[in-house]
Design a protein around this nucleic acid. Sequence first.
DNA 1: GTGAAAGCGCTAACAA
DNA 2: TTGTTAGCGCTTTCAC
Lengths: 356, 356
Amino acid sequence: MGATMHDVALIAGVSVKTVSNVINDYPHVRPVTRNRVLAAIAELGYRPNLTARGLRSGKTGIIGLAVPELRENYFAELADSVIRAAEKHGLGVLVEQTNGDRDTERLVISGARMHFTDGILFSPVGMGQADAPLLDVPFPLVLLGERIFNGPTDHVTMHNVSSAVATVEHLLSIGRRRIALVGAEGDDDSDASSWSLRTRGYRRALDQAGIPGNERLVRRTSHWNRAGGAAAIHEMVAEGQEFDAVFALNDALALGVLRGLQEVGLRVPEDVAVVGFDNVDESQYAVPSLTTVDPGREEIAATAVELLVERINEKGVKAPPRTVKADFHIVSRESTGAGPVPSPLVAATPRVELPT
Amino acid sequence: MGATMHDVALIAGVSVKTVSNVINDYPHVRPVTRNRVLAAIAELGYRPNLTARGLRSGKTGIIGLAVPELRENYFAELADSVIRAAEKHGLGVLVEQTNGDRDTERLVISGARMHFTDGILFSPVGMGQADAPLLDVPFPLVLLGERIFNGPTDHVTMHNVSSAVATVEHLLSIGRRRIALVGAEGDDDSDASSWSLRTRGYRRALDQAGIPGNERLVRRTSHWNRAGGAAAIHEMVAEGQEFDAVFALNDALALGVLRGLQEVGLRVPEDVAVVGFDNVDESQYAVPSLTTVDPGREEIAATAVELLVERINEKGVKAPPRTVKADFHIVSRESTGAGPVPSPLVAATPRVELPT
DNA sequence: GTGAAAGCGCTAACAA
DNA sequence: TTGTTAGCGCTTTCAC
C-alpha cells in the first residue's frame, strides 16, 4: 500500500515527529527541515492514513445523514445542502436511507450502522413522539424536521404553523374563500407531525378571517406523493365539493393536485388556486409553475451542521438541547395567479416574503 | 467514551482475544464463555470501535460516490440505488458532489478527499477523454457513465448508441418523419460523450430508414436542464422549423420540451411526439406522461458496486479493466401516444421492451 | 527545533 | 479452547 510517515522520515533523514509537525503545520519547524520533509512526501506520494489519525484523535471527520429516501426530491435537495454545508467544515457525509421505516430509523439511531461517524443528522419520519426517549443516545445527534418535540437532542425545524397561516392568508388576499387542504400522514400522528401543525395553521387563519371551516374540504391521503394529491382532487370533485383553492401540505401532493385538476377540467389558477409546501426545484418548472412555501431548506441544513459540529467539539457537561427554526418565505408563482414567468429560463424568485 | 474490548474482557473474566473471537463469530468458543462475554458486552453497552478495526484490517467498509449534484433527479436516484446496493454488501456510502466541475472532479480522483474510503464510484461529467490517464489511481475506482472510454479502470455504462437507434425507430414506427433532436454538452466534447453517442444513434437510425437528416432539427443547448429544452423549442419555432417529434437526450430537457411546446401551442403527442432519456421518477408524472429510455439505472448501480467490491478484495496482480453495459428499455407513455394512463395512481410500466 | 516512545482499540500470529 | 503479545499509522507528551 501507500508509504507511511515512517518512510517519509527515513528518506528525509528526520524523525516521525518532525514529519508529523510538518503535516500538521506545527509552527516551529526550520524551513530547511520542512522542505526536506515536503520533498520526501512528494517523492513517495505519501498521504496520511486517516484511519490511523482517526484512531488517535477519536474523530473521523465524517458525519452521518439519515433520510427516508434520496429519490424524494425534498430529501435529495436537503442532502445536497447538507453535503455543501459539511464541506465548509471539512466534513464528509455518509448517507443512509431509512425508507421512512420506523424500525430502520430505530436501527440507525441505535448506532448499529453509522459507527464511523462523529455524529448524525437524522430526519425521522416513521418514529414519533413516543420514541423521543430513544433519541437519548451517547453520540452527537441533531434532528431535522418536526416529528418530535422536546426530545433530548438539538432540533432544527421550520415554522409549520405560522407559515401555514401565512399561506392561507395569501389565498384569502387574492380573494379565495373555499380553501381545501390536502395532506397525508405516516404511522404516527402526534401533535408534532407536519399534518397536525400545518393543519392547525390552516384552521387558525380561517378562524381569524371569520370563515367557517368545512371539513369536507380537508383531505388526508395515505402518501405524501403525487398520486395522493391527484386522488384527493378526484374524490372531492366526485363528491361535488366546491372549492376555489387548494393548500397542499407538500409539493409532491401539490403537483398531483395540479394534474388532478387538469384531468377533471378545472383551470389553475382561474378556477382553483394551488399552493404547495417545500419549494423543491421542480415546483418552479411545473405547468403552471407552483406557488409554494419555502421552509428555508438551505438554512436548515447549514444550521443543523453547525449545531452538530458544536456538539462534536463539546467537552464536559452538555448544554441543554436547543431548537432552531428557519425563516420561511412564500414563493408566489403562476398557480396563484402571479404573472406568468416570462420564460422558463428565468428562475422564479420570491414575491411575497413573510418572515417569522 | 465507550467501553473497550479490554473492559469487556475484564468484566467477563477472559482475555481480549476471547472477546474478539466472540465478536467475530469465531467458531471454537465454548458456549459458557461466549455467554459470559455477551453478558459483559450488554452490561457495558460495548460497541466495537470501527476506526481501530479499520486501522488493523486496512479497510473501512465505506465506499465513496462522486456525482455532479444530488439535486439533479437522475443522480439522486442513482445515489439511492447505489446506497441500496452497497447496503447489501454491508458497505456505507460517502457522497461527494463535484458540480460537474472538472477541477473538483480531478480533486476527488486525486484522493485528496475521500480518504477514508475503500474505493470510489465516480460519475465524471466535467472530465473527458483527455483526462483518462488521471484515472490510473492507486485505489479501487469504478466509472459510471460514458464520458471516458478505454480508461485504466472498470467502467459501467449504458447502450447509448443502440438505445438511441431504438428510440428513433420507435418514433418512425408511429409514423413520425421529421424528428428533432435536443441535447446539451459540457466542457469536453469527445466521441465518448452522451451527446456524441446518442446523436450517432439518432443519425444511424434515420440513415437506415432512408430519411435525410436535417441539421436544422439538431439542437444543442448549454445545459442538460428544462430551461435548455424549452429554449430549443422556442428557437426552432421562431425559425419556422417543422417537426413532428422531439428526441431529447435526457428527461430534464424533455420536460422542458414539453413545457416549451405547450407555450407555443403545440399539442403532445398530436402535433409533436416527445421522447426523453433516463426514466427518472418524474417522467411518469409529467403531463402528458413522458416516453423515455430506461438506461438500466438499478442494474448500473448494482453492477458498479459489485465490480468495486471485487476490486477492493482483489489481491496480487490486477485483472485488466472491464466494461459492462446495462440493458435498456423504452418506456412508452402518453407523450408518444401510448393510451392515457388510466389514473395517476397506476404507475406506468414498460410497454415496448428492446433489449440490447 | 527535534527525537524517543507510549499508546488509541482492535486483530491475528503464536503459545499454552 | 483461550491467553499473550506484537503491531496497524498516527499524534503527543516529555526529554534533549
